[in-house]
Nucleic acid binder design. Structure first.
Lengths: 149, 149
DNA sequence: GTTGATGCAAAGCATTTGCAATATC
DNA sequence: GATATTGCAAATGCTTTGCATCAAC
């Protein structure tokens, strides 16, 4: 277990709890995939994760990577987010800590931000239009410092 | 020419100009597709437009609908927007009049809104992170009045 | 009669699914 | 040993593309 994953014992615990609670099985591919997922920084995309796993010498199918990611999503442990280019990224869910993304169109880098004022304004807008909000998506696209020629 | 399209002469003019400027041809399928596009209200999706066109007794391929929509997009006459469910919608571009969307997860209805304060806050955030913004996307998902059981 | 446009079917892309083989409980 | 899981390939849904045929200039 690496430095990185060591601090994420809660994640493994929550996953174990979810698995037994749903009589799902603890398999070695799930362990491998999850540990690579945790080793990658935030904003993991399925293809990249798959390549990392394969690169580590494990012969696991892409479908299993997707299935595992979906499992984590169902368990409420990760959030899925899809960007304008069609790819989806997964990140460890930090309940109550909502944030939005700033995506660099040059290098693909993703930064996060939170803004309470914006959230408030969104609620106000929904209220005015008589919508009951379930979620929202705010992505800012632009060039990060190092991609501004 | 219907009521609806009559008021959109500028659209046809701009399209004609674009076509000749790029030595592209004025075809009957383009005319048909565009007139159906203009007849549909805002937020047109390719599949729906295709069905309308076919419903009108025209045998035009789906690919041509997509090609025409992309042409309009290249001409700067329509904007494309894609929602969380993967479908894309096209709408007449109203330069300078940026707006965001409120999407009903129940019936698929789409409302629009603009909020200068939010735009301003976005600019502020980008500035703080040293990003040069190129675009953004803000979608609010929820249930509209008639979908609140 | 060039050159661009169309229709169709095939290809892409990211993701999901069916199914027989296999690992976990 | 029952049942969930895997790997693979095939299927998906939306959109694009290749190509021979056809229409616009």
């Amino acid at each position: 277990m690496t430095e990185n994953t060591k601090s994420l014992v809660w994640f493994w615990d929550a996953l174990d709890a979810y698995l037994s609670r749903h009589q799902l099985k603890q398999t070695k591919q799930r362990k491998i995939i999850v540990s690579y997922f945790l080793k990658l920084s935030k904003h993991v995309d399925a293809e990249v994760l798959y390549r990392k796993v394969r690169g580590g010498g494990n012969k696991i199918g892409l479908a299993t990577v997707y299935r595992t990611l979906n499992l984590l999503k169902d368990a409420g442990l990760v959030d899925q987010h899809s960007f304008a280019d069609g790819r989806a990224i997964f990140e460890i869910s930090r309940p109550g800590m909502h944030h939005d993304h700033l995506v660099c169109v040059g290098c693909g880098r993703i930064d996060e931000f939170e803004n309470a004022e914006i959230e408030l304004l969104q609620k106000k807008i929904a209220l005015e239009r008589a919508y009951v909000l379930t979620s929202h998506r705010l992505d800012l696209y632009g060039r990060c410092k190092s991609c501004q020629t």
